[in-house]
Write a protein that binds this DNA or RNA. Structure first.
Length: 260
DNA sequence: ATGTCGTAACGTTTACGA
């Protein structure tokens, strides 16, 4: 089973690109971020034609997450638990049935947090604390669980082309990285890092300043695996070529293949 | 050239978020 995450930066602008990618990469499960649309603005037909069930958690203009799965979707949960006041659409969970064992997938779009310090940075850290609580709950079930999405966190210096340019940025500040590693150290495996130790693996290049042409990238889209999922990992990778196509997202897909 | 996108708003341009 191949599970991919892709921050598409706008479903309306990216639909043709997204469908081409689905036809070519054919992931069994796709977790999408930054729909930038309400649920009604996301067409279901093109996905259903391709054999996918779809669940969306949208919001006008900003954020928005979705999950697509060929084998169907069960027990969909929208929104990160822990704060009923939080209206931002950044979290979706679903169970994928049909394999040897069911897989629980969590798709997330973690807050950017800039400028830091400030209220947006406080929101990011509070959101990460809530996510840690949810991760603890799901890990206690000892199931095959995948947490994938745009974390807006650069874990280490090896994950950024120009580390010194990101020193004060919310994506690279010590508080953000510490919160990321607190979750990782609960027993999760960073799929890409487990299999590809080399530096220079990026998932995002800014549209500005010819960042792609200069390979001035950062690794912020991550797939974290529960121990039961990590034991099933066969391969994983970053779909870098997506960045050089016409009208690309500023992110590229990241995928993992599980033996299930 | 405050550099690039995507989205929404009474919109042929501006503001915001990233």
């Amino acid at each position: 089973m191949r599970i991919a995450t892709f921050n598409i930066n706008g479903i309306k602008a990216r639909l043709p690109r997204l469908l081409d990618w689905l036809d070519e990469a054919r992931p069994d499960v796709a977790l999408l971020q930054e729909l930038k649309s309400v649920d009604e603005g996301v067409p279901h037909e093109p996905f259903e034609e391709r054999g996918y069930s779809i669940a969306t958690h949208g919001q006008k203009s900003f954020n928005g997450v979705a999950v697509l799965a060929r084998l169907g979707l069960e027990d969909v949960v929208c929104g990160l638990p822990g704060d009923p006041e939080d209206v931002q659409a950044r979290w979706i969970e679903a169970t994928i049935p049909g394999g040897k064992v069911p897989v629980r997938v969590c798709g997330l779009y973690l807050p950017n947090g800039n400028p830091a310090p400030g209220p947006k940075f406080d929101y990011k850290l509070a959101w990460m604390a809530r996510m840690e609580t949810r991760v603890r709950e799901l890990l206690a079930l000892e199931e095959v669980t995948v947490f994938a999405g745009d974390y807006n966190v650069i874990p280490q210096r090896a994950d950024v082309a120009r580390p010194d340019a990101w020193g004060e940025d919310a994506l690279f500040r010590p508080e953000s990285r510490a919160a990321f590693f607190r979750m990782l150290h609960l027993g999760l495996t960073d799929a890409i890092r487990a299999r590809h130790p080399e530096p220079g693996l990026y998932t995002f290049w800014d549209y500005q300043a010819r960042a792609w042409e200069r390979d001035d990238g950062i690794r912020i889209d991550h797939i974290l695996l529960s121990p039961q999922a990590a034991d099933l990992m066969v391969d994983c990778g970053i779909d870098r070529v997506q960045r050089e196509l016409e009208k690309p997202s500023d992110h590229v897909p990241v995928w993992v293949e599980l033996d299930i």
